[in-house]
């Protein structure tokens, strides 16, 4: 989905870096409090409904989790993890979806101009009309979010309901949440709310509670309150980064390769100008018979 009215801040495969926008606008963010999530999956249903996504057959893997991972037709997944903590069982639920990174690895890896854009409000979106379905974005994503859609041949993921946000509505998942564990607002407000909730949790005995807003990808437009300071317990990477090899490929190898190619062409002309062609000596071979 792309929305014309929204200003684009970055675009994939742009010539001069990825920045395209000039103005700074307030960045929006989701707020997820895993400690008050009850695992009702209303957000899953709301996401499917608002985005008109097809029904995906569920997998029973001995847990309440709908699917093992996100799908091109399933952009919002509550992950259920069970863990023994201090002799008690913790049932850890976390809403998994696109994190809308401030420095999106998908956008950096994407080779199709404009196929992945980041709006000035921080939302990272795929434009199917420009996507070529190569899957580079999924290589660049540290959260394994973009999925290939077999019917369209394009990548699909959470849009942060950009079509709702654009007209001043909150995303469908937020709207549906019955406990208030999902909130939506400016990034600043959501971070402040998250920090307040973390200190509240610490006061209540959750000493290692934390706000997950990973700086390795410049922060995300989904901030998550974790009751336990172990992101991996919630299937989250502890310190996500755009993969080093993707960075090296785009910012070192590619410019070097382009330079080398042009250098070879220029070198060839320079060689011709310097040494000229290698030709047989004058008269060589002339007058020799046509016989063998």
């Amino acid at each position: 989905m792309t929305v014309q009215a929204l200003e684009i801040k970055r675009s994939s495969a742009a010539m001069w870096g990825t920045k395209t926008g000039l103005r700074e606008k307030p960045v929006v963010s989701k707020y997820i409090d895993t400690t008050t999530c009850i695992g009702c999956k209303a957000c899953e249903a709301a996401c499917q409904e608002w985005n008109d996504l097809k029904t995906v057959a569920t997998h029973q893997e001995g847990s309440y989790q709908t699917l093992p991972h996100l799908d091109a037709d399933f952009w919002n997944l509550i992950r259920f993890n069970e863990r023994e903590v201090d002799g008690g069982l913790m049932w850890l639920m976390r809403k998994d979806q696109c994190m809308h990174c401030a420095e999106p690895g998908c956008l950096e890896a994407c080779p199709a101009p404009g196929a992945i854009v980041q709006y000035a409000n921080g939302i990272v979106d795929v434009d199917p009309s420009k996507c070529i379905g190569c899957g580079y974005c999924s290589t660049g994503c540290p959260f394994d979010v973009p999925k290939f859609h077999k019917t369209t041949g394009k990548m699909a993921k959470c849009t942060l309901c950009v079509d709702r946000v654009e007209v001043g509505l909150e995303p469908a998942c937020i709207k549906a949440c019955p406990t208030g564990c999902l909130q939506f607002g400016s990034k600043e407000q959501m971070v402040a709310m998250g920090n307040a909730r973390v200190s509240q949790l610490k006061g209540a005995g959750f000493q290692d509670a934390m706000l997950y807003d990973p700086q390795g990808v410049g922060g995300t437009s989904v901030v998550t309150v974790l009751g336990h300071g172990h992101p991996e317990w919630y299937d989250l990477p502890r310190d996500p980064h755009v993969p080093l090899l993707v960075r090296a490929w785009k910012s070192i190898l590619r410019p070097l390769g382009v330079l080398a190619a042009f250098a070879a062409v220029i070198g060839v002309f320079g060689h011709y100008a310097t040494y000229g062609p290698k030709e047989p000596p004058e008269g060589d071979g002339v007058g020799e018979g046509r016989t063998k």
Binding site: Y136, S138, T139, P243, L245, V246
Partner: peptide
């Protein structure tokens, strides 16, 4: 790309 792990894809690219 969907059938290979991400690190392998990065190296391949």
């Amino acid at each position: 790309p969907l059938r290979f792990p991400a690190l392998l894809r990065e190296i391949a690219i």
